[in-house]
Each structure stands twice: as structure tokens, then as C-alpha cells.
Amino acid sequence: MCDCSICTRKGARMVYAEQADFKLLKGEHSLGCYQFNTKVAEHYFCKTCGIYTHHKPRTLPGKYGINAGCLQSIDPFNLEITKVNGGSW
């Protein structure tokens, strides 16, 4: 769990994958992208319901952070949580 300002407010439990291993299967047309501060990171969300789905972090090039709550058959509340001091990045 990251403690930067945006992650703290989202409250999402994120899992990470290599960009080469990530494939969005459907719904790309329904996604919006939010960028703040340096405008390097890309934060994706559903334009219909507003849920945060995934992001391309500035500080972890080559990876995607994925909202575990958006993945089928994964209970995000049963994941082991590691806190990350993203607020200092």
C-alpha cells in the first residue's frame, strides 16, 4: 500500500505486473486517464463508474499497478499488504 496523496485517497490494494505481461482484455474505450504533478504517471479509471483500474507509475518504469479489486477471483482483503513510502518519492 502506497502512502502518496493519490493512493491514500484511492484506498486501492495494488498488485504489480511487468508492462509486457499486462493485457487489457476489454473496455479500453471506457477508460479515462488522469495525470498530475510531473504528468509522467498515468492513472486509469472507468469513465462510467469512476473506479481506479490501473496505473503506470513514474517511479517503477516498465510496470503497471493494478487495482486487485478489479481482478476476477481475487479477494483484495486477503492479500498480504506491504506499505510503500510513496509520499517521499
Rank of each mutant, 00 (worst) to 15 (best):
P61F: 08
S73M: 13
C7Y: 00
I6W: 12
N37T: 08
A41M: 08
K23D: 14
K47Q: 14
F36A: 10
E42K: 08
I6A: 06
S30E: 13
K83C: 14
L31K: 03
G11F: 03
T48A: 12
A20K: 07
V15H: 04
H55E: 14
A68K: 01
D3G: 04
C7W: 02
Y52F: 13
G27D: 05
A12R: 00
A12Q: 01
T8A: 12
I51V: 08
I74K: 00
P76Q: 03
F22P: 02
T59E: 11
H55I: 08
W89G: 10
G87A: 15
Q35W: 10
P76C: 06
G65A: 02
Y64S: 04
L31P: 00
C49F: 04
G50A: 06
V84Q: 10
C2L: 12
L60C: 02
H43A: 07
T8C: 11
T82N: 14
F77V: 15
H43C: 07
V15Y: 01
P57F: 01
N78T: 12
F22C: 09
A41H: 05
K23L: 13
Y64R: 11
M14N: 06
A20T: 05
D3T: 14
C33G: 06
F45Y: 13
A20Q: 09
D21Y: 00
S30A: 13
C70D: 04
T8Y: 11
K63P: 00
F77C: 10
K83E: 15
K83G: 14
S88D: 11
H29A: 15
R13P: 07
A17Y: 02
I74A: 00
K47L: 11
G87K: 15
C33L: 06
G32S: 04
T59G: 07
G86F: 02
A68I: 03
T53V: 11
G69V: 01
N85V: 09
Y44F: 14
S30Y: 13
Q35Y: 05
T38G: 05
V84C: 08
Y52I: 09
E18G: 09
P57K: 02
G32K: 06
G27E: 07
T48R: 12
C2A: 14
G87L: 13
I81R: 03
R9M: 10
Y52L: 08
A41T: 06
G50L: 05
C2M: 10
A12T: 12
C49H: 06
L71A: 03
L71F: 01
L25N: 10
A20R: 06
I51S: 12
F77W: 05
S30H: 15
T48Q: 15
A17E: 02
E80K: 14
Y64H: 13
K63M: 12
C4Q: 08
G86R: 00
K10W: 09
Y52P: 04
G62L: 05
G86A: 06
P76E: 02
C70I: 03
D21C: 10
P61W: 11
Y64K: 12
H54T: 06
M1H: 14
C2K: 05
L71K: 09
Y16L: 14
L71D: 04
G11T: 03
D3Y: 06
H54Y: 15
E42S: 11
P61S: 11
K26S: 08
E42V: 03
A17H: 03
Y52E: 11
P61D: 11
H55W: 09
T53P: 02
P61K: 14
M14Q: 11
V84A: 12
C33R: 10
V15W: 01
A41Y: 02
